[in-house]
Amino acid sequence: MEHLNIGKHISGQFNAELEEIRNNVMAMGGLVEQQLTDALDALARSNKAEAEQIIERDRRVNSMEVYIDEECTRIIAKRQPAASDLRLVLAISKAVTELERIGDSAERIARLVTQLHNEPSRNRTMMTSIDSMGRHAQRMLHNVLDAFARMDVEAAMQIHEEDVRLDEAYEGVVRQLMTFMMEDPRSIPNILEVLWAVRALERVGDRCKNICEYIIYYVKGKDVRHLDRSQVQDIVR
C-alpha cells in the first residue's frame, strides 16, 4: 500500500510539472500574439515609439523559449516519459521554437516601422497594403494557440489548410510591391525592406502550420511533417 501511495505521489508531481509547462507555453504564446498585434498596430499608425518597445520585448520571448526548453529537457531526463507524455513534451519543445520565430517576425515588422517612420506617405501606403495579410496571420496565430491549449486536431486541420490562403495573399502583395518598384525605381531600397516584412508574415503562417502538425502528432501519434494535405486529412479523420 505504501509503495502504491508513493507511485501516486510521483505521478501527481509529474502531472503537475506537465501542467506547469503547458501553462508556460500558453503564457509565451500570449506574449508572442501580443507582439504581433502590437507590431501590426505600429505599422498601421507608423508609431516608431511602439515599434521600439516591441523590439525590446523580443528579449523576453527569447528568454521564455530557453526556459521552457530547459524544463522539457529536465522532464525527459528526470521522468523518462513514455507514449503520449513523451509526445506532449516533444510537441511543446518544438512549438516554443516556432513561437520564438513568430516573435522574430513581429520584431522584423517593428524594425520596418522604425526604418520608414520619416519616409514620404508613399511608403506608408505600401505598409498599409500588407495590413490585411498581417491580420490574417494574426488570426491564424490566435486560433492555433487556442487549438494547442485544447489539443484539438480538427481545429488544427482547419488552420493547417488556412495557410494556403495566406500564401495567396503573400503572392498578391509581392506583385503589388513589384509594380511600385517598376513605377518608381528610387523606391526600391525601401520596398525591399517591406518585402522582408511581408516574407516574415508569410512565415508566421508556416510556423502556425507547423504547430498544427505538432498537435496532430501528440493526439494521433503520427508525424505528419512532409505529408501532402490529403494524407494529413486521412490521419486526422
Rank of each mutant, 00 (worst) to 15 (best):
D104Q: 12
D104F: 11
S63Y: 09
L86K: 08
K48V: 09
E52Y: 02
A110I: 00
K78M: 15
I55S: 01
L86S: 06
R111S: 13
R59M: 10
S46K: 10
S46E: 11
S84W: 08
S63C: 07
V66G: 08
A39M: 01
K48H: 05
I75C: 08
R60A: 09
C72Y: 00
E50R: 06
Q53S: 05
V61T: 04
A77D: 02
D85I: 05
G29Q: 00
M28Q: 03
R59K: 12
E65W: 11
A42L: 13
A95Y: 07
C72W: 03
T73E: 14
Y67G: 10
V61Y: 01
R111W: 12
E71S: 14
I76N: 10
T97G: 15
M64W: 14
E71T: 13
V89F: 10
A39H: 01
Q35L: 02
E71H: 13
R111H: 13
R45H: 12
E19S: 15
I109W: 04
A49G: 00
N23I: 03
E70N: 13
L86A: 07
I92A: 06
E70Q: 15
E100W: 01
V96D: 06
A82C: 15
R79P: 14
Q53L: 07
P81M: 05
R108G: 14
E20G: 14
L31S: 02
Q35Y: 00
I68H: 01
V66E: 11
K48N: 08
E100A: 02
R57V: 01
L86G: 06
S93A: 15
A91P: 07
Y67R: 11
D85V: 03
I102L: 09
D85P: 04
A44L: 14
A95Q: 08
R74C: 05
I92Y: 04
L31F: 03
I76V: 13
R60S: 06
A27G: 00
E56R: 03
D41W: 07
V96T: 12
A42V: 11
A49K: 03
I76A: 07
A95N: 12
A83F: 03
L31A: 03
E98I: 09
A44F: 12
N62I: 06
L90C: 12
E100R: 02
I75H: 04
R60Y: 07
R101M: 11
R108L: 13
I54F: 02
A77H: 02
I76H: 06
D58G: 07
I109H: 04
S84D: 09
E107V: 11
I92K: 03
K48P: 05
G103Q: 01
T97W: 11
P81T: 08
R59T: 09
A27K: 00
A110Q: 02
A49F: 00
T37M: 06
V32T: 05
Q34G: 04
A44G: 15
T97C: 12
I102H: 08
E65M: 11
K48W: 04
S105L: 12
G30L: 13
R60G: 06
I55E: 02
A27V: 00
I21D: 01
G30V: 11
E52G: 00
A49H: 03
R101T: 10
V96K: 08
A39S: 04
R79I: 13
Q80L: 14
I55T: 02
R57Q: 02
V89K: 07
A83D: 01
E100H: 02
R59F: 05
